[in-house]
Write a protein that binds this DNA or RNA. Structure first.
Length: 557
RNA sequence: GCGCCUGUAGCUCAGUUGGAUAGAGCAUCAGCCUUCUAAGCUGAGGGUCGCACGUUCGAUUCGUGCCAGGCGCGCCA
């Protein structure tokens, strides 16, 4: 992998410089960038530009001095066969060019690792928890949840691939006001169904699914008259409805290909005793005070705008309080890093929960809250508005059935998580060149097609000894494949799967360009064998990347 | 009023954390299939990187101040 070669080269250059200039450069680490233009080589360093001032010389002069040092160091090292040339370019960049031999190593590596190509032990098995979706069980999932699901799942895949132990967790808010309202909504719809004239309350859940649930509730509880209904306790409605909808949500996520490791319930984690205990802890640390009959958490000590009520004057708790218990519980379970994925409507809540983490004695950096921006859905050129309450929204279920899981997941991932996303349902459905979904998958499928032709022609994959791949399109493709792991690290750094989407698109472009210019199955059998190795190594990288994003890698299209 | 996100081609967006001539897709126009899948490839046109200062060898990137759009600012959840 080129990421390893880069590290080796970097270390070599750093050592060479510190020997040559023991004093001047001690605080200036050498960094290798991937140049935007390939005429500038595979790696580029701006060290001469940065250190020109220290030496009081022109950057190109410094660069040429470094060039001599680097050339000698590489000549004496095992990297001698990997570096083709080094050059200085204005205004003072030092560019490194790899030999074909160095690039062929990428292909050998891919065949050696196959489905594990790109795997790193970077994470050293550290436990990370990614909590996402965590929708209230009061209705089917919306496309806002769908995007969070696609992002969280892909992130977990990537983290695990680079050596972390990442768990997916869904937190179920199965208590509180919204659940009571849900129960009441079902109860009132049931009354209606039994012929009673009901004043259906405005803040009830208005969606049609409530009516279906009312029917189902009565069937399951064998209720067929008003007496039976009135004898039923409100909690029975609430608990049944929350359970019912949680199962709906589980099924939706399952069908969407998102599988959680842990479903934690507020009712089980944030029990009355644990709430009392955690408030005690905070009180002991001096972060709780009483004012106007309520208990306040001094979140301003940690940068929040204002202090927050944790126990209301009527004795009940706010939304924040069980969340304190929950976050303590996460750390108690041994996670070194917590990642919460929330919608933009919760971003005002971040300083509060960060304050909680710090007050509990953990570092601010132990928790990252990612805000996944909304996806605006378009249908026939018009935006579709959403409101759970009114029940007028496009659900994950609808999107899945309309455009398919692959297209849906791709669209949800095709922008940075912080960018508003335009999701055109009509476009996602189309099997035309306007639709970006198939571009990557098409490259993968094309390799299978080549394999079939190659088999007919009796050509074997040459995976041990490459020497004939010299064309620009061939070498470009190999370079792209070599940077796979680099991209995964970048995703980790950014906490965003988007760079991988972008990368796979670029990899597919490199493949399609090669495909268009050169034939794999051709006269020269040796060349064919090597090209067959090239496209199949590309297939492996594409498949690995698609798998991490939760997309299928079709063998034909 | 305060906080967060966003502002780059007609449209939707990249731009690897301060680098080299600012890129891609769509749309428009012009080409490429008797040969491995044309869901592909090649080319053309299209830009005051919201505006103004500042920081330095160098700013789309960093800082400050404006302008515009979105979201959030409860003893709601």
């Amino acid at each position: 992998m080129l990421v390893h070669l880069k590290t080796q080269l970097q270390t070599l250059l750093q050592n060479a410089l510190s020997v040559a200039y023991p004093d001047q450069l001690n605080s200036l680490p050498i960094e290798l960038d991937i140049p935007t233009e390939k005429v500038f080589g595979e790696y580029s360093s701006n060290i001469a530009l940065k250190s020109a001032k220290i030496f009081k010389k022109a950057p190109t002069v410094v660069a040429n001095e470094f060039l001599a040092i680097f050339t000698m160091a590489i000549e004496k090292s095992p990297l001698k066969d990997k570096i083709a040339k080094i050059e200085v370019k204005n205004p003072g960049f030092i560019n490194f060019f790899l030999t074909p031999t160095a690039l062929y190593d990428v292909v050998y590596q891919i065949f050696k690792d196959e489905a594990n190509y790109g795997r790193l032990n970077f994470g050293q098995n550290k436990k990370i928890q990614i909590e996402f979706v965590s929708a209230n069980p009061t209705g089917p999932l919306s496309i806002a949840h769908a995007r969070q699901a696609a992002v969280g799942d892909a992130l977990a895949n990537i983290f695990n691939f680079i050596g972390f132990k990442a768990d997916r967790e869904f937190y179920v808010n199965d208590e509180g006001n919204q659940i009571n309202i849900l129960g009441r909504s079902v109860a009132q719809r049931a009354q209606e169904l039994l012929g009673e004239k009901v004043d259906f309350l405005e803040d009830n859940y208005q969606g049609d699914y409530i009516k279906d649930m009312a029917k189902e509730f009565m069937a399951q509880h064998k209720i067929n008259n008003l007496d039976g209904l009135n004898a039923t306790k409100p909690e029975t409605f609430s608990q049944w409805a929350a359970d019912y909808l949680l199962n709906v949500i589980k099924k939706e996520l399952d069908d969407f290909g998102v599988h959680f490791d842990t479903w934690s319930h507020q009712s089980k984690i944030a029990t009355a005793e644990k709430i009392v205990a955690v408030l005690d802890v905070l009180k002991g640390k001096g972060f709780i005070y009483e004012k106007e009959g309520a208990w306040w958490f001094k979140s301003t000590d940690f940068g929040d705008d204002k202090d927050r009520v944790v126990k209301k004057s009527d004795g009940s708790y706010t939304y924040l309080t069980p969340d304190i218990v929950y976050h303590k519980d996460k750390f108690d379970r041994g996670y070194e890093r917590l990642i919460n994925i929330w919608g933009p409507d919760h971003h005002g809540y971040i300083p509060r929960i960060t304050a909680v983490v710090e007050a509990l004695g953990y570092k601010k950096d132990n928790l990252n809250v990612l805000i996944v921006q909304l996806a605006t859905l378009f249908r026939d050129g018009k935006p579709v508005s959403m409101s759970t309450r009114r029940g007028q929204y496009v659900s994950l279920r609808e999107v899945m059935t309309e455009v398919g899981v692959d297209a849906a997941r791709y669209f949800f991932l095709m922008r940075h998580i912080s960018a508003h996303l335009e999701f055109d349902l009509e476009l996602a459905k189309k099997a035309t060149p306007e639709n970006p979904v198939f571009y990557i998958q098409y490259a993968h499928a094309r390799v299978y097609s080549i394999n079939k032709k190659a088999q007919e022609a009796g050509i074997q994959v040459q995976r041990n000894k490459l020497s004939l791949l010299k064309e620009e399109a061939e070498l470009d493709l190999i370079k792209k494949m070599g940077w796979f792991a680099d991209v995964l690290l970048f995703c980790y750094d950014q906490l965003d799967p988007y760079p991988l989407v972008n990368y796979l698109h670029e990899l597919a472009t490199a493949f399609h360009k090669f495909y268009d210019q050169h034939r794999v199955v051709e006269e020269n059998k040796e060349l064919s064998g090597e090209r067959l190795a090239l496209v199949n190594s590309c297939r492996i990288v594409l498949a690995n990347g698609l798998m991490l994003l939760g997309l299928t890698a079709p063998e034909s299209m």
